[in-house]
Amino acid sequence: MKITVAGKVKEYEDGLNITQLIEKENVETPEYVTVSVNDEFVERADFEKALKDDDEVEFLYFMGGGR
């Protein structure tokens, strides 16, 4: 199946879930990443649900700081 990850179309095996995608993409500090699929935020409890062909996935980090 084809999934768009951070704007790049990539080929993955059917049945891949978000947790597996995080591992395959070597996401830095996965415990702090927020994931959106098709512009909707995904709860960590739902990371085990399978992705679908043509899904668009983004890995987001929210940083604190500033004044």
Rank of each mutant, 00 (worst) to 15 (best):
I22V: 12
G7Q: 13
P30S: 10
N17G: 04
P30G: 07
G65P: 00
L51I: 05
E48C: 06
Y32W: 10
V5Y: 04
D55G: 05
S36L: 13
K52T: 11
G65M: 00
D46Y: 07
T4K: 12
R67M: 04
Q20G: 09
G64V: 00
M63E: 01
F41G: 04
A45W: 07
Q20A: 11
V42R: 04
E13R: 10
E31P: 07
E25W: 11
D46S: 12
E56G: 06
V42Q: 06
V35L: 03
T19R: 11
Y32R: 14
F59H: 01
I22M: 09
G66D: 01
D54K: 10
V5F: 05
K49W: 07
M63L: 09
M1K: 12
Y32N: 12
I22D: 04
K24I: 09
E48P: 02
D55I: 05
V35A: 01
N17Q: 06
V5E: 04
D55P: 02
E11Y: 07
V9W: 07
K52F: 07
E25K: 10
E40G: 08
K52A: 13
F47S: 03
F47P: 01
D54R: 09
D53P: 03
L16V: 12
I22E: 06
V27M: 07
A45H: 10
K2M: 14
P30R: 07
